[in-house]
C-alpha cells in the first residue's frame, strides 16, 4: 500500500493571499518518480501554488496532503522532511561554498541544537556527486554559473532527503547548455524515484521532462492530466492567449511554436 500513497495530493485546493482566493479547484496527485509540470503565464499563481504546497502560506480552501498526512497537521520540520524546495535563485549576500549550501539541507533531520557532522557531510558530498558537481564542493557559490548554482540547490534538496521536491522555474534564467544539463539531472532524479513538481515557461521542455501537467492562468486551472493529453493546441492557445501549434518531431516528441 506504501507505493499507492501519493507523495503530494491536493483536494479542491484554493490558493491565494490573505484569504483572498486567486485560483480554485486545484486537484493534484503525484506519485513516486513522476514529474508534474506547471505551465502558465507570469502572474498566474505558480509561485503561490508552490508556497502553499510548502506550507509557507495557508490555503484559502481545500486541503494539501504530503505522504497522506494533511499539511495542517505537520510541523515545519515534518514538511521539510517530506518536501524539498529548489528556489528560483539564491537570495543570500554571503559567499557560501557549494558544500555549505548543500549541508543546510540536512537541517530538517538534525536536532535544534545540532550542527552537521561527518554523516551529513558524506550525504552532502554524495548529493553533489550524484549531480556531477562533486568537484565544485569548495567553490564559492557566487563564482558558479547559473546552471551550476541550480544544480547545487537541487543537491541541497536531495540532501534534505525528501520524497518529493518542488522547483520554481529551475531552468528559467539559464543558457542552452546549462538548461540541458539541469533538465537531464531532473529527469534522472525522477527516474530514481523522487517526485518532482516544477514550473516552466517552455512547453517543449514540459513535453520532454514531464509525466503530467497542470495549466494555470488567471482564469484558473485550464487543464490537468497526463502530459500527452494535456498539452494540446487548443489548451495551450487558451492558456497563453496566443495561437500555438503542435507538431511531432522525427523523434516522436511534441514541439510547440
Amino acid at each position: 500500500m506504501e507505493r499507492m500513497t501519493p507523495l503530494i495530493e491536493t483536494r479542491g485546493l484554493t490558493i491565494g493571499h490573505n484569504r483572498k482566493p486567486l485560483i480554485g479547484g486545484i486537484d493534484l496527485r503525484l506519485c513516486r518518480g513522476q514529474v508534474l509540470c506547471l505551465l502558465g503565464p507570469n502572474g498566474a499563481g505558480k509561485t503561490t501554488l508552490f508556497r502553499t504546497l510548502l506550507g509557507l502560506i495557508p490555503p484559502v480552501g481545500g486541503e494539501v496532503a504530503l505522504l497522506g498526512q494533511p499539511l495542517s497537521a505537520l510541523s515545519r520540520t515534518d514538511i521539510a522532511r517530506r518536501l524539498g524546495h529548489v528556489p528560483q535563485a539564491l537570495a543570500t549576500p554571503f559567499a557560501f561554498s557549494a558544500l555549505d549550501i548543500v549541508l543546510m539541507g540536512a537541517s530538517a533531520r538534525l536536532g535544534p541544537f545540532a550542527r552537521p557532522g561527518k554523516p551529513e557531510r558524506a550525504r552532502a558530498m554524495a548529493a553533489l556527486a550524484r549531480l556531477g558537481i562533486a568537484d565544485l564542493a569548495q567553490a564559492e557559490i557566487t563564482r558558479l554559473s547559473g546552471g551550476q548554482r541550480q544544480l547545487v540547490l537541487i543537491a541541497r534538496a536531495l540532501a534534505q532527503d525528501a520524497a518529493a521536491i518542488v522547483m520554481d522555474e529551475p531552468t528559467a534564467s539559464l543558457d542552452f547548455a546549462n538548461r540541458l544539463q539541469v533538465a537531464c539531472a531532473i529527469r534522472a532524479l525522477a527516474d530514481a524515484g523522487t517526485a518532482i513538481v516544477l514550473s516552466t515557461h517552455d512547453p517543449d521542455q514540459a513535453a520532454r521532462l514531464g509525466d503530467a501537467a497542470i495549466l494555470l492562468n488567471r482564469d484558473g486551472v485550464i487543464a490537468t492530466g497526463p502530459i500527452q493529453e494535456t498539452l494540446t493546441e487548443a489548451r495551450l492557445t487558451r492558456l497563453y492567449r496566443v495561437p500555438v501549434t503542435r507538431s511531432l518531431g522525427t523523434d516522436g516528441r511534441m514541439h510547440f511554436h
Binding site: L54, I79, H85, P87, A91, S107, F113, P116
Partner: peptide
C-alpha cells in the same frame, strides 16, 4: 551559540529557511 547552525539558515531568506524546517 546553542542555535547557531539554525540561525545560519536565516542567511538564505525566510522562505528558504522555513522550507528547510526552521521557523
Amino acid at each position: 551559540l546553542a542555535l547557531r547552525w539554525r540561525i545560519g539558515l536565516l542567511a538564505m531568506g525566510d522562505d528558504e529557511a522555513r522550507a528547510m524546517g526552521v521557523d
